[in-house]
């Protein structure tokens, strides 16, 4: 059976200077099935963010290919990648990255609006997801009126509101205290189970890593472990 997400021979390097090139990823191969709850771990600079960016179509690899649910992402135009991100992938960022001029509700509805979902349906869905994540009271607030933990919960709600097939979360707990971090991962796991969405997140916090059901470990741009927990 074909995997939901296939990463084949991915390599990526960055040119820091004329003569200095850093290999961020080297020949990464990875298969992830639908509905998995996967953590990518490894020390800083191991290539976690680069790998997530490539899987999410935010960056292109130097070589190799990414196939998401049968769709080959490598080689797609910028416009097509935008549409893949909009329609199939939800993102949670380390720095929350809520749109500052929109309320929490509008942030949650943002991707649905991009998809052209009508206002009433957007509101029903945002209410449903907010209920599930316990953030109903935050919906009318602007991001600068929310704490870090609250912002990240809104960001998680935004990532799943448009019912993507895949949620990518890059160090979602890095800016949170340990209690909030565990609560957030629990919340993501709940969504993974209830919404059936595949979740891949990165972290180097052992407590958070322990919550995943599968662990992929990177070191110096190489995949060094890929185990079920």
């Amino acid at each position: 059976m074909t995997a939901f997400l296939t990463v084949r021979h991915i390599a990526k390097s960055f040119h820091l200077d004329k003569d200095v090139t850093v290999s961020a990823l080297r020949d990464i191969n990875l298969d992830i099935d639908r509905g998995e709850f996967v953590v990518i771990s490894g020390p800083s600079g191991s290539g976690k963010t680069t790998l997530l960016n490539i899987i999410g179509g935010l960056d292109v690899p130097d070589s190799g290919e990414v196939i998401l649910d049968g769709l080959k992402l490598t080689g797609l135009s910028e416009r097509s990648l935008s549409r893949v991100r909009r329609d199939h992938i939800g993102f949670v960022f380390q720095a929350y990255n809520l749109l500052p001029v929109l309320t929490a509700r509008e942030n949650i509805e943002y991707v649905m609006r991009l998809q052209g979902v009508k206002g009433e349906r957007c509101r029903i869905r945002s209410a449903e997801i907010s209920e599930k994540l316990g953030i109903v009271s935050l919906l009318d607030k602007l991001p600068n009126q929310l704490s870090g933990g609250q912002q990240q919960r809104v960001a998680v709600a935004r990532s799943v509101a448009a019912t993507p097939r895949l949620v990518l979360a890059d160090e979602p707990t890095a800016n949170l205290d340990s209690k909030s971090a565990i609560a957030l991962i629990d919340m993501m796991e709940k969504l993974n189970q209830e919404e059936g969405v595949t979740v891949i997140f990165s972290s180097h916090d052992p407590m958070v890593i322990g919550k995943a059901r599968r662990s992929v470990v990177l070191k110096d741009g190489k995949l060094v472990a890929n185990n079920a927990i």
Binding site: R85, F93, N97, L114
Partner: peptide, 16 residues
């Protein structure tokens, strides 16, 4: 720039 970067990351097209 940051706000626009986020919008693009979330799937907003350049034309939008």
């Amino acid at each position: 720039r940051r706000e626009i970067g986020i919008m693009l990351a979330l799937g907003t097209e350049f034309s939008q």
